[in-house]
Amino acid sequence: MRWILGLLLCLQCTVSCFAAERLVLAADVWCPYNCQANHRERPGYMIELAQRVFSEHGIEVQYVNLPWSRAKASVSEGLAQGLVGATLDDPDTRHLVFPDHAQGQMHNVFVGRKGENWRYQGLSSLRTVRIGAIQDYEYGPTLDNYMAIPNVPVHTVSGDRPLTRLIRMLQSRRIDVIVEDHSVFRYTASSLEFTDFELLGDIPGPTALTNLYIAFTPDPQGRRYAELLSNGVAALRARGELAEIMAKYELIDWMQPLTKSSNSHD
């Protein structure tokens, strides 16, 4: 894993990498929160937030894509300094340093092909469908425990673009439903020109809505980064810059009340 991260850094590095201070963020592709690292104009709104906040302190942000399990390990081992899209309820990341305030909020749902009769109506309703999920993702204890039951038809995929694989499996009827964040699924499906889907219900438990963070290495530098980011995002919100960045990805500030008009893509 060390040589993979090192190679990615070398490939993406420019002369500016030799600046006095550089902060490496790692994650898999999870648009619109964090997208492909080589898309400089649209790297994901959480990446743009970090770039804007840390640039004010003379810190250059470098973002690399890794499979989620490797991204978590790279931050735990200090190979990267920040994990994008971390949650407080993930046992693999609880030792990291989290900002006081979130950098986003995900809304996990079941998604399936349009026209199917199935709707989520409790765990018992899952017995009739084949579930698609992403390896090493946390979906909350209720759903995670259910999917861990032997012989439950769950198909997990990995890699740095796992949702694309799951959508292709849904299209080919190899699975029936996908568990994913609403905004991430909509964004990825649009990029694949896949419109024949509909939302089939929220996942069970309180983790249907979960705060998202960029979590940092458990050391003094990580604590400094967390404080700078937390304060910086608050300042961006106050200046209207947060709303400006999120509008670029057709999103609204997660702290604003959700209205029917702002969620018209349901």
Rank of each mutant, 00 (worst) to 15 (best):
R224E: 11
N34S: 15
P162G: 00
Y120G: 01
L88C: 12
P257G: 11
L258G: 05
H155E: 09
R52N: 07
V177R: 03
L229K: 13
Y33E: 00
V75S: 02
R52V: 03
P206K: 11
T128Y: 13
R42V: 05
P220D: 08
R127C: 10
L11S: 15
R130S: 12
R130P: 13
M106K: 09
R223A: 12
M169K: 09
P32A: 10
S262E: 06
R165E: 05
G140V: 13
R223P: 00
A234L: 14
D89C: 04
A27E: 04
M169G: 04
L9R: 15
T164P: 01
H107L: 09
Q62M: 13
W3V: 09
K248I: 09
A20V: 11
S191C: 05
L143E: 04
H95T: 14
G232Y: 05
R165D: 04
L192I: 00
N145Q: 15
N108R: 09
L199N: 08
S124C: 08
A235Y: 02
E244G: 11
M169I: 06
K260P: 09
L163G: 06
Q103S: 13
Q256Y: 10
Q36Y: 01
D90N: 12
L83H: 01
S124Q: 12
P32G: 04
I203L: 14
R70T: 15
L7F: 06
H57A: 06
V109N: 13
L200P: 01
G44T: 01
Q81G: 12
Q36I: 07
F54Q: 06
L242C: 13
D176L: 07
T93S: 12
L199F: 14
I59T: 11
S76A: 13
L7Q: 08
P141N: 03
I47Q: 03
A50Y: 06
T207G: 08
R22F: 12
V177F: 07
H182W: 13
Y120W: 06
A73T: 05
L166M: 10
R173M: 01
C35Q: 00
L23N: 08
M106D: 09
R127V: 10
S230Y: 03
A215T: 02
R173E: 03
F18D: 08
L199E: 03
S55H: 04
M147C: 04
T210S: 15
M147A: 07
G6V: 11
E21G: 00
F194R: 10
L79G: 05
R119K: 11
W30Q: 12
N263S: 15
Q105P: 02
R186Y: 13
Y249G: 03
G85T: 14
N108D: 10
L8D: 02
L25D: 01
Q171Y: 07
Q221V: 10
R237N: 05
S16F: 02
T195G: 13
A148E: 12
D89W: 03
V111Q: 01
L9D: 06
R173G: 02
Y33S: 08
C10G: 15
D266M: 14
V75Y: 06
P257Q: 03
M246D: 05
P257T: 07
L236K: 07
W30V: 04
E41N: 08
A80M: 14
I59D: 06
M246K: 15
N263F: 14
F54K: 07
T210H: 10
L242K: 14
R161W: 04
L25H: 03
E198F: 07
T156L: 03
